[in-house]
Design a protein around this nucleic acid. Structure first.
Lengths: 139, 139
DNA sequence: CTTGCTCCTCTAGCCGCTAGAGGAAGTAGG
DNA sequence: CCTACTTCCTCTAGCGGCTAGAGGAGCAAG
């Protein structure tokens, strides 16, 4: 119930330098130290760190996670804010998907039209050279 | 047929500091200078820069663009390499779409299950706290 | 000749880590 | 007690692809 950073790292599945980074940016509180200056952690830190890790895996940014952690500390407040943060993130993810899907379409078309001849006649190069050859000019 | 960086910027639709950055990383050749030390450009630079811009819009990285530009300079070579670069990029884009789509699914589910009560009972927080509540553990 | 615009270089910042240097603390075995 | 080994510490720099800002010089028009 009182272990060093490496153990925390293993338990939460987060690299040691990343743990220190999270402390630095304020996602984890400054850990108490041994006489020799080493950080000591407890079970609560494992849970907090696992929360952070999972949120990161779901693509939340550091700032959003900071807000989520602040809200977790106030369990009696309505969860509209939590909902809002998650929804905003979802909208961002959907936008990125839409953009990447447009890219994918354009790339596929470009590649499909390549006649596998020489660079000088390559459709891929032509399309890159002339935006007018794109179907969708959203980019 | 001999204009400064601001004019190049306008014609190609690329910000001035970005043009200088592209020169720095070798996508554009070092521009000839006036006596006063200012860069001068011609029509060929507009086309090269437009090519770079379009490739960036399609998500190609600087390194890939460097390779593409080197290939454009050798129009008689077979375009298999061009094709390869584009295909590799397409695969990367598809992977990112797949990943984001999985995120989107998880986020939507999480948000849909939120009962709009208090933070303490919020499903969003619960899911973030416990990875076991995720349907797909690919993340 | 002065105003105002454009241009120059250089440095730092964005995000979220990751890597490495150089050194100190802690632990296990002889 | 000494050594060897591992883990930990701080600090700095780097990734990609720009973007912003400081501080100064060139240049064209009025």
């Amino acid at each position: 119930m009182d272990f060093p950073i490496g153990e925390l790292s293993r338990r939460a599945g987060v690299l040691v330098p990343t743990v220190r980074y999270y402390e630095q940016v304020g996602l984890l509180p400054p850990a108490p130290r041994t006489e020799g200056g080493r950080r000591r952690y407890g079970q609560a830190d494992v849970e907090r760190l696992a929360f952070i890790r999972h949120a990161r895996e779901l693509g939340f940014g550091i700032e959003a996670i900071r807000e989520l952690l602040a809200l977790v500390a106030q369990p009696d407040r309505p969860c509209a804010e939590v909902d809002g943060i998650a929804r905003r993130h979802l909208v961002g993810v959907e936008r990125r998907i839409a953009r990447l899907t447009a890219l994918k379409t354009e790339l596929s078309r470009m590649i499909g039209e390549c006649g596998h001849g020489r660079v000088g006649e390559c459709r891929v190069i032509e399309v890159l050279s002339d935006h007018g050859l794109c179907v969708d000019d959203s980019h």
